[in-house]
Structures are given as structure tokens and as C-alpha cells.
Simulated assay, not measured.
Amino acid sequence: MIDISQKEIWFVVGSQELYGEETLRKVAEHSQQIAKGIDASSQIPVKIVYKDVVKSPNQITNVCLEANSNKNCIGIVAWMHTFSPAKMWIGGLSILKKPLCHLHTQFNAEIPWASMDMDFMNLNQSAHGDREFGFIMSRMRKKRKVIVGHWEDERVQKKLGNWTRVALGWDELQNLKVARIGDNMREVAVTEGDKVEAQIRFGVSVNGYDSSDVTKHIEKVTDKQLNDLLAVYEAEYNLTPSIKEGGAQRQSLVDAAKIELGLRAFLEEGGFGAFTDTFENLGVW
């Protein structure tokens, strides 16, 4: 089973130094509140981790490098609270290897028309900042997901959750080992995938194994293991009379249970997350 309890999405907020200490303090406060809000959402299956507001090319590059090397980080959600000059982002975006989501939102759900002044305008420039950020990603042809809407809306949180699940899938692919059992059927084109290309493009490591690599584990299955698994079959499945205890085809169920136990042992020993055979039947472990 895949454990996602330690996986994280980093919430990175863009701004710049010229806004001054007081404005940037408010930017950080707002950003932390948003990060806590979406982290608490039931729509998002992993932790949302607030990273400090980035205000310079070096800070941006450093957070991207840190994300690349952190095994728990599966992606970045970026938001521009204020105007963050996009040339500052070129270096970081160029090296970022993790999935990226651009959250085009604003801190306030409503615009306070009656009390709005220049201080408010100076602090809340996400419409301007996100447009600048979107421009540079388009100019760089940077692959990303764009989500538009207020961060408290369930619709927005649901879209964030959907993207997060895609990021989890991407992360799993980077570490996935696939066992190809019975590799290969000679001269048959459809059974021979390009394993090198799969690893280059998706990160999936596919290697071939002989059926004997599995059968040696099948031969080690104990009577207790077998009887325990058969008991699970009896309790959790509706079995046809012919494969129940004493049935004419009971042995076929016993053989299948042995194969399952042997295959599980083979996969666990090799650290495989999936397997396939020469007929391209994929099993996810």
C-alpha cells in the first residue's frame, strides 16, 4: 500500500522587497492563513506546507532546488499576493522538476469598496501579480495547472484536490518499479515496450524476470499461509459451490491462492509496485 501521510504540497508565495517590511509582514500573515485554510480542506489528501514569501531570484531558485531534493514534496502551489517581477522566476522555474499549480486567487472574498484606499491597493495586487506570473510561464512554455477562484470556495479546493492526486500519481511514477514476468515473447512487437523510454519520460523502472523467479516463491508457501488465505476467500467472497471445500474444482482455488502468495512474496522482496506479463496484463501492487 502507498503511504501518503508524509507527502506534502508546498505553498509558495511571490512578492518583492520594495513593498517594505510592514506590507511584507501582512503578505506573510495572509499567506499563512490561506495555507492553513486549504490544508484543513477535506478535498485535499496531503499536507499543505507554507513556505516563506519569496522576494528575490535567489530565494525563488533556492525554494525550487529545495523542492526538487525533498522526497516528501510532491509539488508546488504558487500564488502571487503582490506584484512579483517575473524575470525573478526564470531561474527557479527553469530548474523546477516537481508538478506546479498556479493558484490565481486573492486573500479577500470581496472588495471593500467603501473603505478601500491606496494602502489596501498596495497590499492586494494578486490580480496584477498573477497575470505577470502567468505571462512568464506561458513565455517559458512551463507545464502547470492553473486554478482560478477564491481559495475558500469548495469548487477551488476540489480542483486543488484533483491536481494533488495527479501530483501523487506523478510522484509514485518516479519511484515505481515494475516487474515484467515471462519477458519476452520472441518476435512479437506488441509485447515489447520501450523500457528505456518509459524510464526517461515517466521515471518508471521496468525490468524483465523469468517465471521461475516467481515459482520459487510459490514453492515456499506454507500450509498455514495457504489455509489463512483460503479462509479470507471464504469470508470475503461469494464462492461458487464447485470451489468451496469439498467441491469438484476446489484445487483450482488452492492453486490460485498459492500463486497469489508467491507473487506477493516476489513483489515484496523486489520492492515492486506493479507487475505485468508478456500479454501486457498490468497489475498494480
Rank of each mutant, 00 (worst) to 15 (best):
D3W: 03
Q6S: 07
E8W: 05
F11P: 04
F11Q: 08
E17L: 12
L18T: 15
E21P: 07
E21C: 07
E22V: 15
R25V: 15
A28P: 10
H30G: 10
Q33R: 15
Q33I: 14
A35T: 14
K36R: 15
A40V: 08
Q43I: 01
I44M: 05
K51S: 02
V53T: 12
V53H: 03
V53K: 01
P57L: 08
N58Y: 00
Q59V: 00
T61I: 01
K71Q: 12
G75T: 15
W79R: 05
F83M: 07
F83I: 14
K87Q: 10
L93E: 06
L93N: 01
I95F: 02
K98N: 01
H104S: 06
Q106L: 06
W113Q: 00
D119H: 04
F120I: 05
N122M: 02
R131A: 07
G134K: 03
I136P: 00
R139W: 03
W151I: 02
D153N: 05
R155D: 06
V156T: 10
Q157S: 03
N162M: 13
G169H: 08
L173V: 12
G182P: 00
M185G: 05
E187Y: 10
V188M: 11
G193S: 08
I200C: 09
G208R: 12
G208C: 11
Y209T: 04
S211Y: 12
E219T: 04
K220W: 04
D228M: 04
D228T: 04
D228P: 03
L230F: 01
S242H: 08
I243P: 01
G246L: 02
G247M: 10
A248M: 09
Q249V: 00
D255K: 03
A257H: 09
K258C: 07
K258G: 06
I259W: 05
G262K: 02
G262M: 09
R264E: 11
G270P: 08
G270D: 12
G273S: 14
G273V: 13
T276W: 11
N281R: 13
G283N: 11
